[in-house]
Nucleic acid binder design. Structure first.
Lengths: 119, 119
DNA sequence: TCACTATATGAACATATAGTCAGATAGTTT
DNA sequence: AAACTATCTGACTATATGTTCATATAGTGA
């Protein structure tokens, strides 16, 4: 029923004010989105799922995914950047593993949601 | 040190075999990725964060986000498709709210991960 | 019916992203 | 040192995605 700075029509001023005061800052949403973006790819999810059971080296992961080692390496870089996986070196071989159980928690909840949504 | 169907070199056959037997099927990874993809956008996260506190109509959300109502509507469509939000109609106004607490659980874990990663 | 409001939708554009290919690194073995 | 292995990186391409604009739909009130 009125205009705001942004030019949008607002019906419920209080609701908008509440949303604004409870809101995180922009950067936090960007970081959150970045985090979910990392989880939002089938190849990366398959890697993470496999690493929940045991550490694996790059070429084994590539064999498992049936994609090139280069592609795996690119994905592992993203996963490392998001601190979801880390590695240890043994000679020329790099073994990757999960950093913590956040990945498992996230996938469990997401799987539950998907399951319940299909009813 | 042998070749697989896919032509990749495998070092640890057992690890690859284990990963394969524990793996979900392709479709499940696609669905999971789709779910995280929905969470992987700052605008949608801001909408979801706001709706954790109260239901809101489209034009209020637009005012809050400072983007067009059309853009909000497109995003709400995706969120509806993922069964993360639902709406109720009151005259011409549609009030949106969260379907369940999965969103809150996911964002809490992701925020924790981000926080812990910065140490 | 017509005008008005709130929301939805389709097309278009700009940006982001996953994979491929070629070439670079780093550790190993001789 | 040179040859070899495992992995990484940069450039490129095809596809996906978020927003805007214009238009369509659905409900309300005269």
């Amino acid at each position: 029923m009125n205009d705001d700075k942004c030019g949008c029509r607002i019906i419920h001023f209080q609701a908008v004010a509440d949303a604004r005061s409870a809101s995180l800052n922009r950067t936090d949403y960007e970081r959150l989105a970045q985090m979910f973006k990392i989880m939002a790819d089938p190849s990366r999810l398959r890697i993470l799922w496999a690493l929940e059971r045991q550490e694996m080296c790059v070429c084994d992961i590539a064999a498992f995914l049936e994609i090139s080692e280069s592609a795996v390496s690119h994905q592992l870089r993203l996963l490392r950047g998001a601190r979801l996986v880390k590695n240890r070196r043994e000679g020329t071989v790099l073994y990757y593993r999960l950093v913590d159980d956040h990945v498992k928690m996230l996938t469990d909840i997401a799987l539950n949601h998907i399951k319940e949504s299909n009813d």
